[in-house]
Design a protein around this nucleic acid. Structure first.
Length: 203
DNA sequence: GATTTGATTCTCT
DNA sequence: GAGAATCAAATCC
């Protein structure tokens, strides 16, 4: 995918990435390629309190400050990784969280990585499930998602979704600014994760 | 230095 | 619907 696409406001980029393909190249001989079609995203921006970079740049969140089109991978709840794509001007922190996807190639390998998944739709139905299915860990933090030669990159689908299938709503599981409708997903998609309000969400 | 919390998932009820 | 698993980073004292 062209890096210029990442040079737009995060709330515009997040819905634009729906239907895009996340391509995971094999890192061992004989391993198949895995492709995930993005069906759910969330936008985060430095200006709002739900963003990891809201309180300024740290070593952990440096990936959100660009350059655009790179991976920001963070570790949470003691056991899970989540994958973002950085965007913006490189000075302001912003990113798109990949929350769910359809595995359209390499399902067998994804199943090995997600033994708990009962259905194919559960393989990447959730941000940490997605990274597990594709073997994306901290090592991918900072990876260039616009480089087709890399282990992980974004590509455009030949047959993109129709625009009217996009829906928006509040972001899942965030405590602060949870009402900001920056979660985008494809309607009627079995792979979209269920909405859960944070137990301590205020207001 | 100690404590709290989280952009979660799984299992059991 | 509730509770556990599990740890890095942020926050507090």
């Amino acid at each position: 995918m062209d890096r210029a696409e990442f040079d737009q406001p995060v709330q515009t980029l997040a819905p634009a990435l729906l239907g895009a393909l996340l391509v995971r190249q094999p890192d061992q001989p004989g391993q198949p390629r895995r492709i995930a079609r993005i069906v759910e995203t969330e936008a985060y921006h430095q200006s709002e309190p739900a963003c990891h970079a809201h309180r300024g740049r740290t070593r952990a969140n440096a990936g959100l400050f660009g350059p655009p089109g790179h991976a920001y991978v963070y570790f949470t709840y003691g056991m899970h990784f989540c994958l973002n794509a950085s965007c913006g001007d490189g000075a302001t922190a912003a990113g798109v969280l990949f929350r769910a996807a359809q595995i359209i190639e390499g399902q067998d390998l994804a199943r090995q990585r997600r033994p708990a998944a009962r259905r194919n739709a559960d393989l990447a139905r959730g941000p940490a499930r997605l990274t597990a299915a594709l073997d994306v860990g901290q090592a991918f933090n900072g990876a260039d998602l616009c480089d087709p030669a890399g282990l992980l990159h974004l590509a455009r689908d030949d047959q993109p979704h129709r625009p009217e299938r996009i829906a928006a709503g509040p972001r899942t599981g965030v405590r602060l600014a949870w009402q900001t409708p920056w979660r985008f997903y494809l309607k009627d998609c079995a792979e979209v994760s269920p909405y859960r309000r944070h137990p301590k969400a205020s207001r």
